[in-house]
């Protein structure tokens, strides 16, 4: 960075010219008790607040919000801050590094151990919605499901691994996202075909120029489309 930029610098900044940005929910107890401890020392925050410059003499917090809350509660006028650049990316990664935002894993191509680790993380959270879910079963069924084609996480509820729609599935959205692949037209794996709706199966049958399927139920459609001798 040039001499004309503060990015990367550690600066002692007045609390009143710092905007909180997105407020991170933290327990009042932790804030106040830490503020008390801080007041008993020389009042220096050795772990800095991370801010970006939004205008001249105006800063906004992008990470370590806790430090700000504590400084405020301790009645400090100034806090030590590191000035970060203003990009969205920096804001995002800083929040993750500060442990304020949970990073997400791409479930379309995650490995077995990544899935396991993510589920273990979720279950270890206080009041986890996933309490009672058997990790080995859930991990294995998700791992072996045709998840590269999933458009959303709903198919997980059909795996009978204790993760139902609602709170539990919502919890999974905290850690997983998807970058689905289009399903190829010539797919013949019955396991994958059963995950489609009847309408989708019929569309597929039409694309393959089959006939006489219009009154078929789902099981028969799957059978027809997975038949290797067709």
């Amino acid at each position: 960075m040039s001499n004309l930029s503060d990015v990367g610098n550690l600066m002692f900044i007045d609390l009143e010219i710092i905007e909180p940005g997105t407020i991170v929910d933290t327990s009042e107890y932790l804030i106040n008790a830490t503020a008390k401890e801080l007041s008993n020392t020389d009042g220096r925050n050795w772990i800095p607040l991370i801010v970006k410059e939004i205008a001249e003499y105006r800063y906004q917090i992008i990470g370590n919000y806790f430090i700000y809350a504590v400084a405020e509660a301790a009645g400090l006028d100034k806090v030590w801050c590191i000035i970060a650049d203003s990009s969205e990316e920096t804001a995002k990664i800083t929040k993750m590094l500060a442990g304020e935002v949970i990073p997400r894993t791409n479930l379309s191509n995650a490995s077995n151990s990544e899935i396991k680790a993510a589920l273990e993380y979720l279950i270890a959270q206080p009041n986890s919605a996933l309490k009672g879910v058997k990790i080995p079963v859930a991990t294995n069924r998700i791992d072996e499901a045709p998840r590269k084609y999933w458009q959303d996480l709903k198919p997980i509820t059909k795996l009978k691994c204790g993760i139902t729609a609602g709170k539990k599935l919502k919890a999974l959205e905290q850690v997983f996202y998807l970058t689905p692949q289009p399903m190829p037209d010539d797919i013949r794996d019955a396991k994958i075909l059963t995950t489609l709706t009847t309408a989708e199966l019929k569309k597929l049958a039409k694309k393959r120029k089959l006939s006489g399927y219009s009154k078929f139920k789902k099981a028969k459609l799957v059978n027809l489309l997975s038949d290797k001798t067709e």
Partner: peptide, 17 residues
């Protein structure tokens, strides 16, 4: 199926990538 899931996880721990 549950037992399959269990042992599958064991196999993936040591052997399968």
């Amino acid at each position: 199926k549950v037992v399959y899931d269990y042992y599958s996880q064991l196999a993936k721990e040591y052997f399968l990538q």
